[in-house]
Design a binder for these strands. Structure first.
Lengths: 126, 126
DNA sequence: CGGAATCCCTTCGGATACTG
DNA sequence: CAGTATCCGAAGGGATTCCG
């Protein structure tokens, strides 16, 4: 009975879990959320602080987050356009779980990658 | 300074985090891991207990988990083939972070989905 | 500055059929 | 039983171009 908690994961066949996985697994979402944890940032700031992201993907990621109520988008009607993004309460609440995953990653990914590297060369028990 | 912990997420530009995200985001991995939290299971058991998964995807998912050392695969050389799968210590260690995510999902996904439903029809403040 | 639109390649993943 | 192989459509996501 030490596994009854996994019903939270398996619960409805994983539908609920997957709803969020579909959102955060898109390669950039968690990075953007983590970056916004600093506080309000402009589009350009985000573009710089999330290394490697394209304008397109940043826009799409932010739009999805806004749609889901994790991010608040504020447009200022100024001459040089200014748009600011900030996490909502729901958005902030995603940080701890994300952090749990990141902590796990820091601890285990190096070993996993070493293992992968080991298997490619000879693949045997040699 | 309440956001310095996000360095764990953003750390290396998210490379470490993404290494695990790439693994768990493939739609079935977390379900399989959660199912295996019960204990050792055979291929057929998993196929039944993970609703909707195809043989192909179950095989691929298990192979990836085995490669990364999260799952141990044991083949018995019997007349009707028998293969058992079990979580390794590393695999088990993934449960808590996954559970954190699942808990978040249970709490917030309903609201998110309601919000999505709201935006499709009129999309306005109507 | 902050996008939107288009193009296009890669990957994911479902369905099906075959095998030891 | 426990896969493997093939086909194929859908989605992810990068590069580039254009716009208010």
């Amino acid at each position: 009975m030490d596994y009854e908690h996994t019903c939270k994961i398996r619960g409805d066949g994983g539908r609920t879990l997957r709803a969020i996985l579909d959102q955060i697994c898109n390669k950039w979402t968690l990075l953007v959320v983590a970056t916004l944890d600093q506080g309000t940032l402009r589009f350009g700031d985000l573009h710089q602080q999330v290394p490697g992201i394209s304008q397109r993907m940043l826009t799409l990621t932010l739009r999805n987050l806004e749609r889901d109520g994790l991010v608040l988008r504020t447009v200022y009607a100024e001459v040089p356009p200014r748009v600011e993004y900030a996490l909502t309460a729901v958005g902030k609440s995603l940080i701890p779980p994300a952090l749990a995953l990141a902590t796990w990653a820091i601890e285990h990914v190096p070993g996993i990658e070493a293992r992968r590297a080991d298997q490619k060369p000879s693949r045997g028990t040699a």
